[in-house]
Design a protein around this nucleic acid. Structure first.
Lengths: 220, 220
DNA sequence: TCATCAATTTAGATTAATCTAAATTAAATT
DNA sequence: AATTTAATTTAGATTAATCTAAATTGATGA
């Protein structure tokens, strides 16, 4: 069995690799995990000894098949628990991350499968992120960002790129929610801020910073 | 915040004190926690330094109000999660203990309160044990043991004294379940084994070992 | 009362995860 | 190619939880 810490390192490496498809550096892991590079090096040696990562000094790391499998199972649990918290216990989408960080480390494959069934074998979590199935497969979720939207066109919100609670709460307040319709009315050339209409009801103005963190798919 | 380990020690001390109302000995804790006495001594010093237990060398320990509060909150979480697993995820009563041992250490009072509400503010877990409320209050559960039952009388099963999975599975197979009606038909003087009828349907024979681990209340 | 024994504690190590500071290496710049 | 710089690793400590073995203490019973 692997410790919580090991599981968290594997998850971090998976996510960093997902973000930019390169070999993952020691420093980037240290930043993500909120520790020091020296600590990361020690852990990398340990994970390499367990054949969970490919590691050569100074060269960065990648996950082995075994490491990837563990990372995906943690992400699966995290996202299932997040959905449980929102759907069944009525938490809001900005309140569930920290609790799911703990729940994701509960070891019981039976529990995960039953939770999955209880939730109706969902494909996405409350932030629109895909939930891996028990084989580690998940939809690639190649969504576009709202900042690439064109004036006059309509989109559906499919997720967020920033999962920070502050950001999510702000989106809530503005009226955004997963699946809402977003019509781009106009784009300001100067700062790339947008005027948009949400669900044909409410027209608001958002900065490019916000638009860059909202995932959309085209509505035809 | 307290570590999982500290929480487990507090829970163990609470349960040992509950069993026999005496000061709890180092050895009994070691046995319950599956560690060595020396390890326990170290931990007792640590818990005493945090004012969670009253400890004087060679004298055994008791919980302070603060320690008791933590122990009860862990037990509350454990029992709520067990009920969730049985009621919502359809686990059987002998499958939930190990998973609840993990879930009980998830820190989030909001989560516990919402879970409690989701389950309808239950008073008992799947084994008939009382669930402490968020103030730490719980019904004393002063049940009698089936071994004290009298021939010809009827009882309701209210819980079990032994929570071992093997025992629970055996009870299942015999047809016992929480709330079932038990009529004591006869008692064999020699070995104190019992002939009983379950739910007016099925008459079986059980040893005193089994009867000693079933909690009942009189049916009037 | 005093010797004996069982329970408990202390002493000294070990392992996992972390740190700081120093050393090393690879990459970038001149 | 040589030098500088930034990233990474190593060295050496620290803390929490654990262990074994030795020492101590309190209780028991002769």
């Amino acid at each position: 069995m692997n410790s919580f810490t090991e599981e968290n390192y594997l998850k971090a490496i998976f996510k960093l690799h997902e973000a930019d498809r390169l070999a993952v550096s020691t420093n980037s892991i240290a930043e993500k995990m909120n520790t020091k590079a020296a600590t990361v090096t020690d852990m990398l040696k340990k994970l390499a000894a367990k054949n969970l990562i490919n590691y050569t000094r100074y060269q960065g790391v990648s996950l082995t098949a075994a490491g990837r499998k563990i990372a995906l199972s943690i992400i699966r649990k995290h996202r299932l628990w997040e959905l449980f918290l929102v759907e069944k216990l009525n938490f809001r989408w900005n309140e569930v991350h920290d609790i799911a960080e703990q729940l994701e480390h509960v070891h019981s494959s039976e529990l995960v499968e039953r939770l999955d069934k209880y939730l109706g074998f969902p494909k996405h979590d409350p932030h629109g992120d895909p939930i891996p199935d028990n084989k580690g497969r998940m939809s690639p979720s190649r969504s576009a960002l709202l900042e690439t939207g064109e004036a006059g066109k309509k989109y559906i919100m499919t997720g967020v790129a920033d999962h920070d609670s502050i950001f999510l709460e702000y989106l809530d307040k503005l009226g955004f929610s997963l699946g809402c319709e977003i019509k781009v009315e106009s784009i300001t050339a100067y700062d790339r801020s947008l005027h948009i209409t949400l669900n044909r009801k409410k027209t608001i103005h958002i900065s490019n910073d916000v638009a860059r963190n909202i995932l959309i798919s085209q509505l035809r």
